[in-house]
């Protein structure tokens, strides 16, 4: 069970490792770890913590993409859920109900997307574009256009607290990913989602309830976005409807792609997507530490992403294999006695 998973995520793990090595070469203290007041601190821990929003989104996005869909609205859902949680805490509902309200809001947003895609039959790109556009407006209505701050220490703990030595957001994305992977692989859900993503019609003719599956997948994406929204909001102790989760849907899609999942649907790996999110955040951390002027940030990030995707691309893998055999055969040809003309 473990071995095939490892083999699947090997390219991503190697990429992550290579990045860490690269950054450490430029900036040796990147690997520093120390225990302060019973919590681990260091650049790596911070990178893992900062990965939380994108990693959480990537979990949901992986499933949506596995069904041949895409969810552009998760960034806006982050804003909505963050705003509702901050509003509820501020209005004195208490932490528990506030979290419940935020998570329900996320699931409701996901259900809306799912219904548009699975029942109304709108293309996922367009269907989720609707909420992507409208969602931020809804969040602004909740916050009345200002940054809604709160002081509830329990809520803040979600963003900056520590549990067993590690930041709470790290636990959050880690447990969400593990739990989701377990649910998908220990039940038949994973295979059914893949079947629907590869051939929805054939799956439906075999009795797979494609509609319900599609709706559920978007609901899960909404739930994951809600968790990400809680982390983002708790982190700055305020709901910033204009900026919370802005463009994060694109980072999440990128994480899924770096994770080697096809945008055409089908086979998926949550672990690989989450490592993809870690890779993106490691790049961000490296850029920050390196101290380049900010004008270079996006260019460096894009260049690294291109390199990663090109190296992982299967067709290039084929070229490498071809090159290797070509080199090998040339070497052999050189060592072989030159009795006849070498054939081209």
């Amino acid at each position: 069970m473990i071995f095939p998973v490892l083999r699947r995520v090997a390219p991503q793990l190697i990429t992550l490792f290579a990045l860490i090595v690269l950054i450490t070469l430029i900036f040796p203290s990147f690997l520093n770890l120390s225990l302060v007041d019973g919590r681990l601190v260091g650049p790596l821990v911070d990178a893992a913590k900062r990965s939380a929003p994108v990693a959480l989104l990537a979990v949901g996005m992986t499933l949506v993409i596995a069904t041949k869909g895409i969810d552009l609205s998760v960034g806006a859902i982050i804003a909505i859920c963050g705003a509702s949680a901050a509003w509820a805490v501020g209005a004195g509902y208490g932490l528990g109900p506030a979290l419940l309200i935020a998570l329900s809001a996320g699931i409701a947003c996901g259900l809306w997307n799912g219904v548009l895609v699975a029942i109304v039959g709108i293309q996922p790109f367009v269907a989720t574009l609707i909420l992507m556009t409208a969602g931020r407006g809804i969040a602004q209505l909740i916050t009345e256009g200002r940054i809604l701050t709160f002081t509830d220490p329990g809520f803040a703990w979600i963003g900056s607290g520590t549990l067993l030595g590690l930041p709470v957001p790290v636990w959050l994305w880690f447990s969400t990913a593990v739990l989701m992977a377990l649910i998908l692989r220990r039940t038949a859900l994973g295979m059914l989602i893949e079947a629907v993503g590869i051939n929805r019609r054939a799956s439906a003719l075999s009795g797979v309830n494609a509609r319900v599956l599609l709706i559920a997948v978007y609901a899960v994406a909404g739930f994951c976005a809600a968790l990400a929204g809680l982390v983002v909001t708790a982190d700055i102790r305020g709901a910033d409807a204009n900026n919370a989760g802005l463009w994060l849907e694109l980072d999440a899609i990128l994480a899924v792609v770096i994770g080697g999942n096809s945008l055409l649907g089908g086979r998926f790996s949550i672990a690989a997507s989450v490592i993809g999110a870690l890779i993106i955040q490691t790049i961000n951390a490296g850029i920050l530490l390196a101290g380049f002027p900010p004008e270079y940030n996006l260019v460096i990030k894009a260049a690294l992403v291109v390199v990663i995707l090109v190296v992982q691309s299967p067709s290039l893998g084929g070229h490498f294999a071809f090159l290797r055999t070509a080199l090998l055969s040339r070497r052999e040809a050189r060592h072989a006695p030159q009795t006849e003309e070498p054939k081209p």
């Binding site: 911070d46 982190d235 204009n242 920050l288 530490l289």
Partner: peptide, 26 residues
């Protein structure tokens, strides 16, 4: 000694500051 963009947002300011603190000996 350090200059980065935080995009005028709270979370941007927090994230970048964390990086600065690490880069400058905590």
């Amino acid at each position: 000694v350090r200059s980065q963009t935080g995009d005028f947002t709270r979370s941007g300011g927090k994230t970048v500051m964390e990086g600065f603190l690490q880069a400058e000996g905590g």
